[in-house]
Design a protein around this nucleic acid. Sequence first.
DNA 1: TCTGGCTGTTACCGACTTGTTACCGACCCA
DNA 2: TGGGTCGGTAACAAGTCGGTAACAGCCAGA
Lengths: 227, 227
Amino acid sequence: MKVLVVEDDLALSDVVSFTLRRAGYEVATAHDGLAAVEAFEQSPSDLILLDLNLPRLDGLGVCRKVRSVSDVPIIILSVRAGDEAVVRGLEMGADDYMVKPFSPAQLVARIRAVMRRVGVSAAPTLLSVAGLSLDRSRGEAQRDDESAPVRLTGLEQKLLEAMMLHPGQVIPTDALINTVWGPEGGDRTMLKQLVYRLRSKIEVDASKPIYIETVPGIGYAFNPPNV
Amino acid sequence: MKVLVVEDDLALSDVVSFTLRRAGYEVATAHDGLAAVEAFEQSPSDLILLDLNLPRLDGLGVCRKVRSVSDVPIIILSVRAGDEAVVRGLEMGADDYMVKPFSPAQLVARIRAVMRRVGVSAAPTLLSVAGLSLDRSRGEAQRDDESAPVRLTGLEQKLLEAMMLHPGQVIPTDALINTVWGPEGGDRTMLKQLVYRLRSKIEVDASKPIYIETVPGIGYAFNPPNV
DNA sequence: TCTGGCTGTTACCGACTTGTTACCGACCCA
DNA sequence: TGGGTCGGTAACAAGTCGGTAACAGCCAGA
């Protein structure tokens, strides 16, 4: 789920973005009203967190413009605490209104409440690199030349995902171990075995791998054909 | 539109009721938690304004009970201003949380905002996806090739509904548990059992399910034929 | 008061996942 | 040359997962 944070105070924009990323959301930012409208048009988010005092087009203007084309949930975050401002914002189409300063925990809870009511679907989950696709929501991988996907286990999916997110790059053994098993969670033997298992599932011929390249003494790379 | 005002302070109950009637809403009142649940069961309102400090069953208890049977919007009105209380209330299923004392104008604006969102995201009473219909008001499901509907229990309906609202989409186990039982309310064993029971009711052959697909380690999807 | 339905809990089963161990060949270094 | 390390391959055992079924307690309705 993607959140657009519209805030001209850069420090606050960073804090809010950090809070949201830690809560598991994807974040885009805009620092003035027109940039916000443009960002939403180019890549609609699932939720907008909207300051009112913005350069170039104020928050209510953004709200009006966005509302004319979308019913995306909007939460206003503003220093304006007066009744009139709150009522005005809600009437302009906001779903909620929080007065600064606000607590991160409450922000996240209110986001969740709004999204619960909306029933928004999950973020995009398909990774596709040079003929190999990973559908993260289903835990399946599929080569273009195969008619049916192959099911991956939880750990296999984590490993493949970690590599596909950085195609062509060698990822050190320790980094992969950390990504898959977390801190203090795995070792080289386990990674070696997992690589073997993953190759058995996705490679045309696991003894002559083309997708997962071994870099001896260093790590592995997702090295699709033609890259 | 009918609002149920649940407030043990009679004077405040009267003030809020007056405000709402003047804003054009029909109002019912209850002054303790059990009376509220009963009133809602006997004559469901379109919105509940809910105090937390209530005799006989506190506001969170009311919220939990109501949420177990209904998606009705709930706005909590409470003197409890702390983060924990707000977060707790929102996580329990409330759509909004206002701290007393609050302004009547803001209350009405927030009611409108919540109802506006409900109006947008409300799903029809009859859900029909690829030959399977769910009549939510009757709690019945029916395949096109069956002459009579089958009656679903409350939990079965919730589960089927949650999936049919997002056909083709894998819904993680935890999300289904949360939807059906609410926060802290269920576990994997209960979901597994519920899936089994629901399949026994709607599938042609529950051992070879075609509507409810299992995605091992992840969740389930409503995966009707041809999708 | 009794009964049937609902729901949570427990039990069992087979399939699958994952950590661990074992073995092999290739490679490097003293 | 021998020992050690590394990466690939395979097997085994313990634990988890999902399906199936039964039981018990609770509650609403007759």
